[in-house]
Amino acid sequence: MTAHDRQSVARTDGDSVPDSSRAWQELTADYEQARAREDSLDRLVEWPAERDMLGDVSGRSILDLGCGNGGKLAELLRDGAVDCAGVDVAGNFITPPPTGAELIRGDLSDPESLPELRGRTFDRILFLQSFGYAKDPVHTLRAARSMLNRDGFILLTRTQPIRYAVERAEQNGTTVGEEYFSTADYTYRTGWNDHIALTKRTYTMSDLLNVFSAAGLWIETADEPRLSAEAARRYPHKQAWMNKYLGILIFKLRPLAPRS
């Protein structure tokens, strides 16, 4: 993976849909419906771990880049966050919008260029499974870093790269090692809507760490969340999926101190 982590979207019938915003206008409702299910890994694993790493948000301003319908931002506002904003390319937001947040339809790739965000800074900036859609990951992280208040941090989650390697090895009849280091694009069905597939440039852990470094960020904390024992007993099919594909990575990123 280079700094220009590409992503395109295509229908599974072969018709090209190069504009990701068009696809997400169709996918958003399906994604939010899947996320709300009782056995959703977002509900069981991802959001609890993300929320734990965010800590106390009372009095904190938050920018959620790739906020989906804005539901998580609304929850953070209920927990005491203030002066928040969310950006999503689909623009299919909850109504009415939560008090204390501005929900903006736009591309997360260049947040400082959005008129609604120009000149604003935040205590917390979130990329919750949205960072893979940045057209230039290093540029996007540098822009986010410039929008942080003093002592602020970026919370960023990404799919485990091993997941894509395992899936492609199964699909292509190859090995995990071959696919982990392959630079070929990977097309897969999301599971939210069988009629739409996403095509992504995969990445390795070193790719991801080098992007953080190039953006002037260091990792304060990292996590690889797992199902609780109770959830694993209650949803064995989800534990089986986690055993095979591992889930997500969570990073708390802070700006590097300028050299004296």
Rank of each mutant, 00 (worst) to 15 (best):
residue 59 G to S: 13
residue 124 R to F: 04
residue 133 Y to W: 15
residue 35 R to K: 08
residue 90 A to C: 07
residue 181 F to Q: 12
residue 98 P to R: 07
residue 60 R to K: 15
residue 195 H to I: 00
residue 160 Q to M: 10
residue 63 L to F: 03
residue 22 R to G: 02
residue 128 L to S: 13
residue 210 N to A: 12
residue 149 N to H: 07
residue 136 D to V: 06
residue 64 D to Q: 03
residue 78 R to V: 13
residue 60 R to Q: 15
residue 236 P to N: 11
residue 148 L to V: 08
residue 145 R to L: 12
residue 77 L to C: 11
residue 64 D to L: 07
residue 48 P to W: 05
residue 92 N to T: 11
residue 221 T to A: 13
residue 194 D to S: 00
residue 206 S to H: 01
residue 135 K to L: 02
residue 186 Y to S: 10
residue 108 L to C: 07
residue 36 A to G: 11
residue 22 R to M: 02
residue 152 G to L: 06
residue 77 L to D: 09
residue 236 P to L: 05
residue 16 S to M: 04
residue 193 N to Y: 03
residue 258 P to H: 02
residue 207 D to P: 09
residue 209 L to N: 12
residue 231 A to E: 09
residue 7 Q to K: 06
residue 61 S to K: 12
residue 134 A to E: 00
residue 233 R to I: 06
residue 155 L to G: 15
residue 24 W to G: 02
residue 135 K to E: 14
residue 168 R to D: 00
residue 187 T to E: 06
residue 49 A to N: 07
residue 119 G to M: 13
residue 244 K to F: 03
residue 2 T to L: 11
residue 122 F to T: 06
residue 178 E to C: 07
residue 142 R to F: 05
residue 116 E to H: 13
residue 198 L to H: 04
residue 98 P to K: 07
residue 94 I to Q: 04
residue 10 A to Q: 04
residue 217 L to Q: 09
residue 20 S to A: 08
residue 76 L to N: 08
residue 231 A to L: 07
residue 247 G to T: 05
residue 194 D to V: 00
residue 237 H to D: 10
residue 56 D to R: 13
residue 234 R to V: 00
residue 111 P to M: 09
residue 34 A to C: 03
residue 137 P to Q: 12
residue 98 P to V: 07
residue 217 L to P: 06
residue 7 Q to A: 04
residue 113 S to L: 12
residue 9 V to C: 05
residue 78 R to S: 15
residue 82 V to P: 03
residue 175 T to W: 05
residue 189 R to E: 01
residue 25 Q to E: 11
residue 196 I to E: 01
residue 79 D to P: 01
residue 83 D to C: 04
residue 235 Y to S: 08
residue 51 R to F: 05
residue 183 T to A: 08
residue 92 N to S: 10
residue 135 K to N: 12
residue 103 L to E: 04
residue 42 D to P: 01
residue 170 E to V: 01
residue 107 D to N: 15
residue 227 L to T: 11
residue 191 G to L: 05
residue 129 Q to E: 00
residue 81 A to S: 13
residue 98 P to S: 08
residue 188 Y to D: 01
residue 74 A to L: 10
residue 81 A to G: 10
residue 121 T to W: 03
residue 239 Q to I: 09
residue 120 R to G: 05
residue 43 R to G: 14
residue 257 A to R: 13
residue 63 L to G: 10
residue 112 E to L: 15
residue 60 R to E: 12
residue 174 T to R: 07
residue 219 I to G: 00
